[in-house]
């Protein structure tokens, strides 16, 4: 299929061309022509693979060890999006700094916002930390729609899978049943694993941690872990010495033993705080592909729960 070779993007003829080619593609049978899914994060790609199985190929734009807020523009991103049948993003303004530019640059009308080839997964979940009242930069990098790090609650996994299965079924009706069956199997397995993870962490009464950024909110809420403060005074704002001093006092009083942070943030602030308070800095992957061992959505949580449980069990 040479759909991506048409240089003119903005005319109706091109759209008709795409549509015509798509129709022939589906008419020819979806079995050999796999749906090309491009996602903004590896979490979404991992879940899409669970749902799509052999009928799709899923590729992520960002790597798991990258902060999806910011990426350096590279030509291959445009090629990927240009060839995509379905572009899935995490939404809630996570990719606001680059995705609109990327979609414009990629010249693929099919995946523009509002088109069937564009899916905002945040519509499938219930966001937390939705700010009330007027939002301004003085509040830090607050996302008006709520905290965008929702894949870190494993209970959101099945909701994401459901939205992906529904959209894949619309784009590729022939395999709708398969997508639905895969989604169901994924949901069952997640439910079983959540019980396992919860029981492992339940061994520690009233666990408290300090986090670096609001990355962890969904995860901590799921497993009943309390965060008594964050290294960043406001989301996205690096700490001042006064803020760190204050936080160190609180940590000593509450006997906090763990500073939890995403492994792509710089560690020097957390390490300074760790030296002052004796707490351990846990720099962990926050996405599939974020570290060796976190190869899919399940092993990501296996790794997180394991590392956290080990840190909590230390005296």
């Amino acid at each position: 299929m040479n759909r991506h070779l048409f240089p003119h993007s903005n005319n109706i003829g091109f759209a008709a061309c795409i549509l015509g080619l798509l129709l022939t593609l589906f008419a020819a049978g979806g079995a050999e022509a796999r749906v090309r899914v491009v996602t903004t994060t590896e979490d979404i790609a991992a879940i899409a693979r669970e749902v799509g199985g052999n009928f799709i190929e899923a590729e992520s734009i960002t790597r798991g060890m990258q902060d999806a807020h910011f990426i350096e523009a590279k030509p291959s991103y445009m090629l990927k999006v240009n060839r995509a049948d379905l572009l899935i993003h995490q939404g809630l303004d996570l990719e606001i700094g680059w995705l609109p530019l990327l979609v414009t640059g990629a010249r693929n009308p099919q995946v523009r916002e509002g088109q069937p080839g564009s899916l905002d997964l945040s519509s499938a979940i219930v966001p937390i930390e939705v700010p009330t009242g007027e939002v301004g930069r003085h509040m830090g990098d607050v996302h008006p729609g709520g905290n965008p790090h929702y894949p870190l609650d494993p209970a959101n996994g099945p909701l994401m899978a459901e939205a992906i299965a529904k959209r894949l079924g619309e784009l590729d009706p022939e395999n709708r049943a398969a997508y639905d069956a895969n989604r169901q199997r994924f949901a069952n397995r997640i439910a079983q694993k959540i019980a396992e993870w919860e029981s492992r962490l339940a061994a520690f009464p009233d666990p408290v941690v300090v986090t670096y950024h609001t990355t962890w909110s969904y995860f901590l809420r799921r497993f009943g872990i309390e965060s008594i403060g964050s290294v960043e005074p406001l989301p996205g704002v690096p700490p001042s010495p006064a803020h760190l001093g204050h936080l160190a006092e609180t940590m000593k009083r509450r006997k906090v033993k763990i500073i939890l942070q995403a492994n792509y943030f710089e560690k020097r602030h957390s390490e300074l705080l760790g030296r002052q308070t004796g707490a351990q800095v846990l720099a962990l992957p926050v996405s599939v592909g974020g570290a060796p061992g976190a190869e899919d959505y399940f092993s990501l949580f296996d790794l997180l729960v394991d590392r956290l449980a080990k840190a909590l069990s230390q005296p």
């Binding site: 807020h69 523009a73 030509p75 445009m78 530019l101 990098d141 989301p235 996205g236």
Partner: peptide, 17 residues
């Protein structure tokens, strides 16, 4: 928020976009 990234963006620009 994310001021450091803002500064970096100004230095590197984004010719590609």
């Amino acid at each position: 928020p994310h001021g450091a990234e803002h500064i970096k963006n100004l230095l590197n620009g984004s010719v590609l976009w």
